[in-house]
Design a protein around this nucleic acid. Sequence first.
DNA 1: TGTACATCAGTGAACGCGCGTTCACTGATGTAC
DNA 2: TGTACATCAGTGAACGCGCGTTCACTGATGTAC
Lengths: 184, 184
Amino acid sequence: MKVSREKAAENRERILDEAARLFRERGLSGVGVDALTGAAGLTHGSLYSQFGSKDCLMAEAVSHVFAHAASRAAGAQSIADVVSRYLSAEHRDYPGRGCIMASLGSDISRQSPAVRQTFTQGVRSIMARLSALLPTRGDRLREDDALALIATMVGAIVLARAVDDPEFSDRILSASRTGLLDDL
Amino acid sequence: MKVSREKAAENRERILDEAARLFRERGLSGVGVDALTGAAGLTHGSLYSQFGSKDCLMAEAVSHVFAHAASRAAGAQSIADVVSRYLSAEHRDYPGRGCIMASLGSDISRQSPAVRQTFTQGVRSIMARLSALLPTRGDRLREDDALALIATMVGAIVLARAVDDPEFSDRILSASRTGLLDDL
DNA sequence: TGTACATCAGTGAACGCGCGTTCACTGATGTAC
DNA sequence: TGTACATCAGTGAACGCGCGTTCACTGATGTAC
């Protein structure tokens, strides 16, 4: 049955929201087409009407997540604020709402050109947002400082989630947090 | 046909070596049982004789990779040496021979307890090796400095591999390298 | 405003495929005598 | 040292299953008159 344009747009947005969450929670290959559309209350066929393929949905979902992340970064008060929120137990424990560089990072290099391109744009936009918050330091480029900062934050969350010992995980977060905040 | 104990041990080692490489190149879910045993010149059944399941092989392969990494870290001359080698184009371009924290990191949190436990032991051993190379700095624990260092290195390789623009990728590596080496 | 019809988002059955795993079997190895 | 036999690493066919995708179809929406 056909559905109003408005309703179709809502459905599309709901699939994207659920995909953005599920991919970050379970990995790109850990969520099937049925799970993706089912979470939005639809059947698998609707994915092909709206996106054409799972790969296209993946690319759009990546873009979707980065758009939210960039606007959040734009609203941040300071770098100390960003670092504290990013390297928190809260962020570590809810990957479905967290940074996509940390939850899917290792897998992106093995994805299609479309996904990698979208991801690259996202990294650039986050770099730009964070560099705007950084102080100028000697002849170092603020964008380079932002990249090094992002690398540390991403690596710390990746490792903090990977290890199975909560205390060790906390230690990875606090060590990285201290290292970064001392630098400011 | 039965095979000599010596030959069986060789086969086991060859499966482990190939698994260690293939998992890092294609991801844990990107390599099937046929590919794993086929790369070692055997058929899929031999995996079950030797390891019991794909999951058990994954855990052993993780351990295998960390054992090599730890002995390499133990032989390092200095932290500057470690950082330069780790954050190199060479390392970025050959994940099959590189750090498993970078190639599989994001996926480990979604793996079985056995895999996560082995991974955690591996991170601990690398932390210990690197902290032995670090200078004491005020009241900071060298192990904490080692964890922050590892986080930066892992995150930088993850991002440098993910992005599809070679220049941007180089910039991620050089920015992180400079950031770390300036700190020493 | 009311009627007739084309559109197309979403459905559900069906597809081929590769996955991890099992199992009866093979036959050289290693052991017991 | 030579023979008989048990062992078991590795084989290959077969399994059920979930994957991504296709396609004919449905029926409310949106448009043309």
